[in-house]
């Protein structure tokens, strides 16, 4: 059977310069795909629906031979699996799944359970974490055009609109806002203590990755919560966020220890 390489397109957030530091937080986020599954023999529509139902929830996956991770059996969660259309030999499906789920493998396994075999013909990622197909998706061709307008016509509007502030990369994380006086110390690697907190999201759990913002909405760093939100609200001191990854430059906010001397 001539298969060739499946066509793979869609949402691929590209981080620029210092935003590269935030990539790790995107990789662990929820993914959504639309895929074309080619069935090797015709089956009843009801049978396809029935088998797709079996692949919802926690599934076992062995990574494919040509993959970048260790080939040990992994448990992955498929949150949603929907049959959009089936017109033999093609079935269009939508998959909402945990990061690291192999859709190609999922389709192969669905084919095995159907008893007729199947392979992935086309794949389009429609979402990764906060990045969605419907919001500010830019084609390479368009980006190239915008760069031309900027360089040759001195018109930067379109390129500016195509680039989102890096803060968008952590918009799926819970947030805390630090007071101005606490910002500088965090950029030097200090943790965020309770007295430095201005605002906080509800339902933060101890151990969560939390994004630390300024009152102006600039991202300072990402860290790990050392207490739940409820505990913070009742505390006067102690460490709330252990700083892990600093993204803001050190010279943006004045150090509070200098201010005190003035």
């Amino acid at each position: 059977m001539g298969r060739g390489n499946p066509k793979v397109t869609g949402v691929l957030p590209v981080a620029l310069e210092d935003a590269v530091k935030l990539i790790g937080y995107l990789m662990l986020s929820t993914k959504e795909y639309v895929a074309v599954m080619q069935l090797h023999k015709e089956v009843d529509l009801s049978k396809v629906r029935e088998v797709l139902e079996m692949f919802k929830g926690r599934i076992y996956q062995k990574p494919p031979v040509r993959s970048s991770v260790k080939r040990a059996l992994r448990v992955k969660e498929v949150y949603e699996l929907e049959l959009i259309e089936y017109e033999h030999p093609y079935a269009l499906i939508r998959v909402l799944c945990e990061h690291g789920t192999y859709v190609r493998k999922l389709i192969h396994d669905i084919g095995d359970v159907l008893g007729v075999g199947a392979h992935m013909r086309e794949l389009r990622r429609v979402r990764t974490g906060p990045f969605k197909e419907e919001f500010n998706l830019v084609r390479l061709q368009e980006l190239s055009e915008y760069v031309y307008l900027w360089k040759e016509r001195k018109d930067e509007d379109k390129l500016k609109k195509a680039i989102l502030p890096a803060e968008y990369m952590v918009s799926h994380l819970p947030k805390v806002v630090a007071v101005d006086g606490a910002v500088s110390a965090i950029t030097y690697g200090a943790d965020l203590a309770v007295p430095g907190v201005a605002l906080v999201h509800e339902k933060i759990r101890k151990g969560d990755h939390v994004a630390i913002f300024t009152l102006k909405g600039e991202l300072v760093a990402v860290g790990i919560a050392q207490m739940h939100t409820e505990e913070l609200l009742q505390s006067k001191k102690g460490i709330f966020i252990k700083t892990k990854r600093v993204v803001m430059s050190r010279d943006v906010y004045p150090p509070s220890w200098k201010k005190r001397k003035e």
Binding site: L12, V14, K216
Partner: peptide, 29 residues
Amino acid sequence: SETDERYGKCPEDRGLNELLRFGVVNLDK
């Protein structure tokens, strides 16, 4: 708490060069 307008800048007010240093493009591969 209030923020001192002399320091920092709202992300929406960043210029192109600032976005190029700390931005992200939602690219259609």
